[in-house]
Design a protein around this nucleic acid. Sequence first.
RNA 1: GGUCCAGUGGAGAAGCGGCUUAACUCAGUGCCCUCUCAAGGCACCAUUCACGGGUUCGAAUCCCGUCUGGAUCACCA
Length: 554
Amino acid sequence: MVTDKEIAELIFPEVTETIDDLEKRFPVRKLKEGAEVTRFAPSPTGFLHTGSLFTSLICHKVAKDSGGIFYVRLEDTDTKREIQGSGEELLKQLELFNIIPNEGYLGSSQKGNYGPYIQSQRADIYKVVIKYLLENGKAYPCFCSQEELDEIRAKQEKAKIIPGYYGPFAKYRYLTNDERKEKILNGDPYVIRFKSSGNHVHKIKVSDLVHGNFEIAENDMDIVIFKSDGLPTYHFAHVVDDHFMRTTTVIRGEEWIASLPIHLELFKTLGWTAPKYAHLPVIMKIGENGNKRKLSKRLDNEAAVSYFLKDGYPSEALIMYLMTIANSNFEEWIFEHKFEHMEDFVFSFSKMSLEGALFDMGKLNFFSREILSKKTKEEIRDMALAYSKTYDEKLYNLIKSDENFFMEIMNIEREKENPRKDYEKFGNLYESISFFYKDLYDASIKENPLQFNERFSLENVKEVISKVKEELSINQDEQEWFSNMKAIGETLGFAPNGKLYKQNPDQYKGSVSDVAEMIRISLTTRRNSPNLYYVMKVLGKEECDRRFNLLLQK
RNA sequence: GGUCCAGUGGAGAAGCGGCUUAACUCAGUGCCCUCUCAAGGCACCAUUCACGGGUUCGAAUCCCGUCUGGAUCACCA
């Protein structure tokens, strides 16, 4: 009679190492008490998902706060879905958000003593563990074809029982070793399945850092642990890797809760202590049918981190926003700390909401404006340059044409107690500031004639503008400038303030706001702009006069 | 369909048996302020915590049931 050991030897003759050898190769980490080892384990199947950024943010934070290790492991066992180069891209994007691993897969290199950190390079390690399982009758080769699998499923669906490869349906589980040997020798293709000893009628108690304790049915599926392509499945790789990489806390999306029993049984069977688990809520969005659904990369722009990058949101803003979802007390904290040093905030799993939050673009915008308003003009320049260099050539050239001029523009009402907050992202910066530039202004008025308030005729406007041109000097302080503008308005029949005009609408043509609006539109082509006084200062007398003349000549 | 998780305003949420006529933030609305916006200031925006029962002197908070939503059921992760 053929023994389990012989089957194991037959399948993995090349494997000579044992689990004990691996334990020695990857010794328990010497870290201080309470230090957490966390990991972000993306598969290279596309660019960074907003949900993944959320997860990695928390992994990073937990490790950092506890003085532990945060590493990245590339889960590239699904060779069919792999997209070349996406692994490196993932790491690059993480770096933009200041999420830098202490160890692991780093894109172009790997760092650390617990590697390799790319699953496809760890085949020898998985094989050692699978051989052990095989030797001890805890795993077996399964020769089931796709057709057979479909057949089993169809039968189960018809009988309305739980679908899957388990119990009496696990047909190759009951083969004798002699039969197995024969089939292997015969060259029949196979996978290796875990031999579950669980029963789904039994409940097991599980504990989760965010969900607390709850009960869940025991696993009884003989899941595939080793695919016919020679690579492990996620379930198995997770258990082996997180054990030997000495992960203390597994932080991952909520979608994994359902497979937790599988992982726990695997850990138990191997005699290993399972790590702590934290299953994070999923970021949602309202779908077309009005119901919540997971952010979808295919349907939602905001599902891809690259979308925010392309739009020119400062990375801090996204992180700050994600933190408000992560911890309900973060928002209050960051307000108290004036939107600074968010890295000092202490994260805790218990302050995490259990429900998936709806992605709130409005709130992101709010944080973004807040953050941009706090930057100095030099920081703004650097950020704008970094952004435009890859995403907006026109903007890049515009800034480069005169960096000081650009900074002057961006500095209007910036470095003061309550700075203006009208810049939200760099994606529309070109649009917002183009009027400051002579050529762009000229091009703009050629295409779109100035739109003044229809209460006034062009003659009214010209009258105001010509007087403003002659008499309104910008070589005085803002206060004087404004009084001056009021006075000019008054001589032409405009009320010095809105209140007065409202009280006696018949006595005036309008109010000083109308005067301001005429100047604003003539100079900027638009109804709203930064503080008019400073706009004029930045443009300079000569350019203001030139623009006024262009209008007066009409 | 089975299993698990969840259910406080437009959104994120606080709340842990009386201090709640439900905090705070975003969005929205209105008013105020020496220019449009922005900012700032001041108001308003859930008589009610998915629903129905129960426990209790007292419940958003505890118990039971119902409903609704989400996740998951692969040789994908």
